[in-house]
């Protein structure tokens, strides 16, 4: 099966309001094809909401999301999403769960071959016939990634994909994600609350938060965009990254101490 080439994503003036609570405001962002962009921000800063706009699970009240030049309207075949929880169907085996991600028109034999290929890529070929309750959290998250890749996405949207994993598993998964990215190069938009993870994985890091001096329900904007230097795989302990890390934490710290942050 041909893998879909990575696709560029453009967000123009994207805003989203729930009732009288404005979550996002004037989000402008251009993501190049094949780029990895990490979104960080304090809890409740609208990271997941922004991601859901790109994943097609929610529609903005204002502005547009465009993928490869065509506007997004609902769930789109060109994007695939993986959640913080693996969200595997407990009554299906790992392989049958990955199958869920295959495009609808995939012929049976081709689909099976593709699932096997993806299970090899995420190192789950030995667990293919196990049920989700029989595998660990890290394995389940890998199965969830394989399911997303089965869709052959041009844009891969990841909502805190490793957030529920233990620290050690998380590091292994980050390396796996980079391996996947070189094997199946999609544009990746990922939400994380882990600054180190963002700096290790991303080409650019987007800091999301309310502007200083504005009330919390004025909606989050892009506070800063940081281009991470150096080619991947990066040295986890590099000094220039440490500098950026301090900057980003500083940015997050401001939002967390914001007096209006209480809901």
């Amino acid at each position: 099966m041909p893998t879909v080439p990575a696709l560029p994503v453009v967000l123009a003036g994207v805003g989203r309001t729930f009732g009288d609570r404005r979550v996002l405001r004037d989000i402008d962002l251009e993501i190049a094809a094949g780029e990895i962009v990490a979104i960080i921000g304090a809890s409740g800063s609208g990271k997941s909401t922004l991601l859901r706009q790109v994943g097609g699970l929610d529609q903005p009240d204002s502005g547009t999301v465009t993928i490869d030049g065509t506007p997004l309207n609902g769930v789109d075949q060109r994007t695939a999403i993986a959640f913080q929880e693996p969200r595997l169907l407990p009554w299906r085996s790992v392989a049958r769960n990955v199958e869920v991600g295959l495009p609808r028109s995939t012929p049976r034999a081709e689909g099976r071959a593709r699932v096997d290929e993806l299970l090899r890529l995420v190192q789950l070929e030995d667990a293919k016939s196990l049920r989700p309750r029989q595998i660990s959290g890290g394995m389940a998250q890998r199965a969830s990634l394989a399911r997303a890749l089965a869709r052959g996405p041009g844009v891969l949207v990841l909502d805190e994909p490793f957030g529920a994993l233990d620290a050690l598993t998380r590091l292994t998964m980050q390396d796996l994600l980079l391996e996947i990215h070189s094997a199946e190069p999609a544009t990746i938009l990922l939400v994380t609350h882990d600054v180190d993870e963002a700096l290790y994985l991303a080409d650019r890091v987007i800091l999301l938060g309310t502007e200083p001096g504005y009330p919390a329900n004025s909606g989050a904007v892009i506070r800063s965009v940081i281009t991470v230097p150096g080619k991947r795989p990066r040295d986890r302990g590099s000094a220039s990254l440490a500098q950026l890390r301090a900057e980003l934490l500083d940015g997050l710290g401001v939002s967390t101490h914001h007096p209006a942050h209480t809901f």
Binding site: L130, R133, I135, S136, M139, T169
Partner: peptide, 20 residues
């Protein structure tokens, strides 16, 4: 095979499978 994997899984996974 299955037993080996259950044994190898993290605490949350194995506790859950034991329950089931």
């Amino acid at each position: 095979m299955a037993d080996q994997f259950i044994a190898a899984t993290g605490t949350a996974g194995s506790a859950y499978s034991g329950l089931a």
